[in-house]
Design a protein around this nucleic acid. Structure first.
Length: 179
DNA sequence: AAGCACATCAACCGCCAGGCG
DNA sequence: TCGCCTGGCGGTTGATGTGCT
């Protein structure tokens, strides 16, 4: 039984994995770490690549449009982070899950909205009474309709009025992205 | 400056579904 | 049909960072 590294990835491991995938692509995650010379399991490599090293990933803060989209999609899909991530280019399911659990959940709870059902538990607290109610930033109230077409004012406060036509819910199968 | 509490997020774990022999 | 293997997903954990006292 060979020793496998666990825990945080080092810069050197990142470089090895990136170089190997850039040169050879991915055919088999189980085989890849051995071929690349990494003391990691395939699962760990896949996760590291998909969540951190892939070149088309967005890093940094979520925009207000992204946040509104996440809330709308979560109401439609529930905790289907992979499906939600598929609608947000450059964002991973792990990113979105973390963002939901650390920011959005608390934001909704703070506004009297149940984050699982999206039901307003405190209807007396309306957007009119609290103009910041749907701001994702403490100091920056959201616009009622954002550029992405999400009706932000209805995103979490009222029941549906969902602009699903503006969300791409096409789940058809396509050839995998080479990365 | 030190200690503590809380927030963040990278990474792991367990489970499940699909493919294949 | 069954069992094994692999990839993918969602939930959870733990290390690290940050802010407060």
């Amino acid at each position: 039984m060979e020793h496998l590294n666990k825990g945080a990835w080092t810069k050197e491991e990142d470089e090895i994995l990136t170089k190997h995938i850039t040169e050879h692509g991915v055919s088999n995650w189980q085989y890849l770490p051995r071929a690349a010379g990494l003391m990691r399991c395939g699962k760990s490599c896949r996760l590291r690549w998909n969540n951190y090293l892939k070149p088309d990933l967005k890093r940094g803060n979520f925009t207000r449009e992204e946040t509104a989209a996440i809330i709308d999609l979560h109401r439609l899909l529930g905790n289907k982070w992979a499906l939600i991530a598929a609608q947000l280019p450059g964002r991973t399911d792990n990113d979105i899950k973390n963002y939901w659990n650390t920011h959005v959940r608390r934001m909704l709870i703070g506004r009297g909205i149940d984050p699982q059902t999206h039901i307003n538990l405190n209807p007396s607290l309306s957007i009119n009474q609290n103009p910041r109610i749907f701001s994702t930033h403490r100091d920056a109230p959201l616009m009622v309709r954002n550029d992405a077409g999400f009706n932000v004012s209805t995103a979490a406060n009222r029941r549906p009025n969902i602009t699903t036509s503006q969300i791409n819910l096409d789940l058809s199968i396509r050839p995998p992205n080479p990365y």
